[in-house]
Design a protein around this nucleic acid. Structure first.
Lengths: 146, 146
DNA sequence: CTTTTTGCAAATGATTTGCATTAAC
DNA sequence: GTTAATGCAAATCATTTGCAAAAAG
């Protein structure tokens, strides 16, 4: 549903869409690959600044939105106040702790084709499917009485 | 995984937790039942004001958060900038349009037990599971070339 | 050269907080 | 009476926008 892009493929994809290949975009893409998990815009910026100074947060936001359109990242489907980008582009699922707000990957074999088929039959163009579990993670359960 | 609460049950649940039964809470709960779908805090307030004047947005936010803890509503798991509360408390799924940001219910038979089991085995206390499809809805696909 | 992208500063908009007042119990 | 809940105004914080300067093609 979306394979991971190499730096060269990214450059090609950009050029193909009449977009420019900038150091910022390359570095952000590289950092995303190194993270290989979940990151907010700030967290991306933090790592990017070590490689390329003076990159601004608006650029990070714009680039993440761009990469999402190109299929290089996905916004995680989870309740929460800040956008979490997922750098894993293979199908997998998420666990969301409603106490600490943490998001963790969950790999489990689930057959989602009934949902995808139902959506597509209704005229929706599905591009991504994921399962989200909401609850309380182990550490929050330990700290809290509830 | 969470049944719909009657007004009496809500009052009991509140008292049981040492919380107070206020007209605002009762009205908001009633409005949620009438909506029976998705709503943002503003949308809840809009309907509440018709029944009880001078209710404030902070109260709506606080009450929705409270009801979430009580299991009477759920924040929809979907990428997006504003919190969408789901007043349907029976298991069902969602379709999220990445163009218009719309969220629509999706009913489809999906066996999520492998995911729930995997999460619980890892020490996570799962309370809610849902499938989220991301893509482009029919109207946005019609308007846009992509 | 032309047009996109960037960086910065300022704006926006949802959600939260502080605090005095009101209402449950 | 005590203590929690409310309303209001102000604060917070992620995300976006406007625009001039820099850089890609």
């Amino acid at each position: 549903m979306a394979g991971r892009l190499s730096s060269d493929d990214l450059a090609d994809a950009l050029r193909l869409n009449g977009l420019r290949v900038t150091p910022q975009r390359l570095v952000i893409h590289r950092v995303l690959g190194e993270i290989g998990g979940h990151a907010t815009a700030d967290q991306v910026l933090e790592r990017v600044e070590a490689l390329l100074p003076n990159v601004s947060l608006p650029t990070v936001y714009a680039t993440l939105a761009l990469f999402e359109r190109l299929g290089a990242v996905h916004r995680v489907s989870a309740p929460g106040d800040r956008a979490v980008y997922d750098t894993r582009t293979d199908p997998h699922h998420h666990v969301y702790c409603r106490v600490c707000g943490g998001v963790v990957d969950l790999d489990a074999p689930v057959d989602l084709s009934p949902a995808v088929d139902a959506a597509n039959e209704s005229g929706f163009g599905a591009e991504w499917v994921e399962v989200t579990l909401t609850g309380v993670c182990r550490s929050c359960a330990g700290a809290d009485a509830n």
